[in-house]
Design a protein around this nucleic acid. Structure first.
Lengths: 133, 133
DNA sequence: CTAATTAAGACTATTTTACTCTAATTTATA
DNA sequence: TATAAATTAGAGTAAAATAGTCTTAATTAG
């Protein structure tokens, strides 16, 4: 799977947050979505670090969107949620056992690069607004 | 990751097989590629079951291509190697814990369907010949 | 002050991936 | 026909990634 539950939860939460006037707390979101609170909280922290959400601490705190939905790419959300770009196939993690010995120089490398860039482009062009309208 | 090592090994092996006149054995392929023999053998068995390779048992046996490179889609190879279509995000495996309760009816479903179909189309249109030429 | 909330990070459980191992079957060829 | 070279099938295992939990600290509205 290219995406994990982190991306799923991030997108589901962002859809609620963008439709809310007031900050939404992690607990409230986890209840509305029926997903684990501590896991969601961590994902939301990641989105805040990447500047997608603003987090407000303390009573009546929570998370709010920083930018307009149309200015937030799905790529940026997924990267923030997963902690890395979603990889079609990650050669680098196998560097020690790469059959060819040299990452990026094997016969399938051109295919992988093309495939990855198709995925990247698709996610970069799509915005939060696009997918919920 | 969308693809696993099974797809990587399948593609690397197919590139050698298609350039060979005689059947190529699993052992020979695993030596040439420096990848584990028993794992590769299992992957090749999968390709044979799906009709991508023909397997010849016994002495001087091995694997040969059944069709022309230009008639073998990357999609069919990956499905044979992985045992399933590579999924962008697999809701069904989470059916018990789907936040929405009903698979395929949540707010992100349209996005996932579109994304998946982009990936499927890309892999279906590409052939073995395409990626090695 | 205090209750509500996020922040950070260590920890754990579950699932998937990436294999291995063994025993059986098939077949070219000597 | 015996034998060595090969695939076949399936159970088993080790390592890594995923999907969480838990605890403690920091912040802030009222």
């Amino acid at each position: 799977m290219l995406l994990t539950r982190a991306s799923e939860y991030a997108l589901l939460a962002l859809d609620i947050i963008r439709n809310s006037e007031k900050p939404k707390g992690a607990e409230q979101l986890s209840n509305e979505l029926s997903i684990p609170k501590s896991f969601l909280a961590k994902i939301l922290q990641g989105l805040a670090k990447e500047g997608i959400l603003e987090s407000k601490k303390g009573a009546h705190g929570g998370f709010v969107l920083v930018k307009k939905s149309s200015e937030i790419s799905i790529a940026s959300i997924v990267i923030a949620a997963e902690g890395k770009t979603p990889a079609v196939f990650d050669c680098s993690q196998y560097s020690a056992t790469c059959p060819n010995g040299i990452i990026g120089s094997c016969t399938i490398s051109p295919f992988l690069v093309t495939f990855q860039s198709k995925v990247d482009t698709f996610l970069q062009k799509l915005t939060l607004e696009d997918i919920f309208n």
